[in-house]
Nucleic acid binder design. Sequence first.
DNA 1: ACCCAGGCATTGG
DNA 2: CCAATGCATGGG
Length: 278
Amino acid sequence: MSLLRLPEPFDFELSTERFRAFGPDLANLWHAGALHRVAGGRELRIGPSEGGVDVEPLDAETEPVALKLVGAEFDLDGFYAWVEAGSDPVLKRLVVALRGFRPPLGLDPFETLVTSITAQQVSLFAAFAIRNRLIERFGVRAVHAYAFPTEAALAAATADEIVATGFSWRKAEYVLGIARAGLDWQRITSLQDEEIHEELEAIRGIGEWTVDWFLARHLARPRAWPAGDLGLRKAVEAFYADGATLTTPEVRAMGARFEPFQNLTAHYLLTGLRVAGV
DNA sequence: ACCCAGGCATTGG
DNA sequence: CCAATGCATGGG
C-alpha cells in the first residue's frame, strides 16, 4: 500500500471513467478495479485510496506518471471558484455532480497523436479496437498492460503491417510520417497554443481537432477547446441549446464564455453527458 | 444491406 | 474560398 496524495477533492471512479467507457485500452488498462500502465518497462497499478491513489510500485519514476494519469495538475480549485462566482447554471450543476473529477492526461506526445488519429472520423468503439490491435502488434506487454508502440517501433514498420491492424492506408501513412519525422517534442511542447497549432497542422494527418485534443489531453492547456469534436458538440447542444443542432463555428464561439477554463469545461460537459444522473 | 461514428487530405468549382 | 468525395472498422 503506497499512498500518493492528491489535492482534494479527488474522485477516483469519475477520473478513471474514460478508461472504462469505450472498451479496454491495452496501454491504459482497467483491470481488477485499478488502472494499469507501463512506465519504463515496469507495470504500475493505480488503485483507489483515501486521500489520493494507491500506486504500486511508487518511486521517482512512477510518481509523475501516476500524477498525469489522474490529472493532478489541473486547477480544480480555480475552476470551481470561477464557476461558483459565475452565473452558469449548467456548470454549477456539473461541478456538484462531478466533484473531484480530474481529466486523465495522455502521457506521451507521440502516443497522444497516434491515439487521436485512430479516432478520426470513426466511432470510439472502432478506434479502440483498431488501436488495441496496433498496440498488440507493435507494443510490448508487461504483465497485464502493454507499453504503447514507440516512435522507433512504428518508424520501422511498413504501411502494410499497420493496415493489417485496421488502419486505412491514409492513416497508416500519417502514422509512419509522424514516427519518421524525428519531431523535437521537448521544443514543440514548450510552445504557445497557437504555435503548436501551426507546427503540428503542417504535418499530414494532423488537423485542428487533433491539435486541440493534444493541447487539452496531453499538455493540459487551460484554454484548449476542441470545438470540432463531435462529442463536445453533442454535449454543448444538449446542455446549452436544448438539443438544437449547432455548427463547429457556433461551438467555437461558445468557448469564449468559459475563458480561461475551456479545457476543464469541455471535460465536465463530455463526462456529464456520459455519467447517468447529470 | 445499409448508416453513422469524438477528421483529414485531396480534388474540382 | 467552399463543396464533394474516399477512407476502414464496429455497432445499431
